[in-house]
């Protein structure tokens, strides 16, 4: 009895260890991370540039959100630890300083997006985004936590290994040194060998995103309207940014019920079934429909787009290579064959 118990725990620990190592440390390609870098960078740049017209209105010397106000809002009487987080934007005393700092931040985000000095600019881009968030934390909503989550993990992986200026510079250098065929040297799908850091970064995004899905659905299920099917009706009436007027749906209560339950079912099942390789394409396809419909319904376009971008972390590097090759007008079959080889 004791022997069998010991064997059981030995097997359990051994297999758990193997599973853990396989999950986190199997080297993988970085094409998915590269695509994530580009799309996340574009999203960060969009948010950054749209703040420019209101920058002085919010953060200027006579702005709506002086540093002292943010400090007051951040003070937690129940905690001895100050919750206020430093932002370099607090050092800007004049409007010109503020705009200059913002412009430098935009340059950093552009460099991150195009993959120039990727290792450094991924860190700097994260600092830029976090500094903006902490300076005006009361201006933040749903998109910022998803954006910073993805950017944070992108710092860990080789995001500049593909589709980047860094990669182009390396190829150009190699071309000069070895005098190789130009067409062969500029193949987008050829990149460095799979790495452990790419796997860790990808897995962290996946795990964190699945946990966020769980939080989303649990926070919904805490409210009765998501159980009795009324939530979509409320959203049609209370979303000031809704892209289309769906208040007429009130005449079709079954449609409202079905839409409400579909949202809950999708978020509930995504975190579970996305880990099953066979179900993953289906979940990702449903995710596209669901997030686009939510964008129409709620008007939370940046958030819904960012969720779609983050979902790309579940696309394998091989599939992403094929997709990139297809986009770059190469045959997907040949790209798949090359990636398999």
């Amino acid at each position: 009895m004791i022997e069998s118990t010991r064997n059981y725990f030995d097997t359990l620990t051994r297999r758990s260890g193997e599973g853990w190592n396989r999950f986190w440390f199997t080297p993988s390609g970085a094409m998915s991370l590269a695509v994530l870098r580009i799309l996340t960078g574009l999203m960060a740049l969009w948010l950054h540039l749209t703040l420019l017209p209101d920058l002085v209105t919010y953060f200027g010397p006579e702005g709506m959100l002086p540093v002292e106000t943010i400090r007051q809002l951040s003070s937690d009487p129940q905690s001895s630890t100050p919750r206020y987080v430093f932002s370099y934007l607090t050092l800007c005393r004049t409007s010109d300083d503020l705009q200059a700092a913002h412009a430098i931040g935009a340059v950093v985000l552009v460099m991150f997006t195009v993959g120039l000095f990727s290792r450094l600019t991924s860190l700097l881009a994260l600092v830029v985004v976090l500094a903006t968030i902490h300076r005006g934390v009361v201006l933040t909503a749903e998109v910022e936590p998803i954006l910073t989550m993805v950017m944070c993990y992108l710092c860990l992986g080789p995001t500049g290994a593909h589709l980047s200026v860094d990669r182009w510079l390396v190829r150009r250098k190699l071309l000069k040194e070895k005098n190789e065929d130009h067409a062969a040297a500029t193949r987008p799908e050829e990149g460095p060998a799979p790495t452990m850091s790419a796997q860790v970064a990808t897995r962290l995004i996946q795990v964190h995103l699945a946990a966020i899905y769980a939080v989303m659905v649990l926070s919904k299920l805490a409210n009765e309207a998501w159980w009795d099917g009324e939530a979509v009706y409320w959203l049609t009436h209370t979303s000031p940014s809704a892209l289309i007027d769906l208040t007429w749906l009130y005449a079709y209560p079954k449609t409202i019920d079905a839409w409400t339950h579909a949202i809950v079912l999708f978020e509930l099942s995504f975190g579970l079934f996305v880990w099953i390789p066979l179900a993953r394409p289906l979940m990702l396809s449903v995710a596209v429909v669901m997030w686009l419909s939510l964008a129409l319904l709620t008007g939370l376009v940046p958030f819904c787009l960012m969720m779609l971008v983050a979902n790309l972390a579940f696309v394998s590097p091989q599939a992403m290579q094929a997709a990139v090759a297809m986009v770059l007008r190469r045959g997907p079959a040949s790209a798949m064959a090359e990636s398999r080889a």
Partner: peptide, 15 residues
Amino acid sequence: SSGGRSDARFYLTRT
């Protein structure tokens, strides 16, 4: 929710 200082409504509606 940044400690309650952010308007992050992942629940979308609380009716």
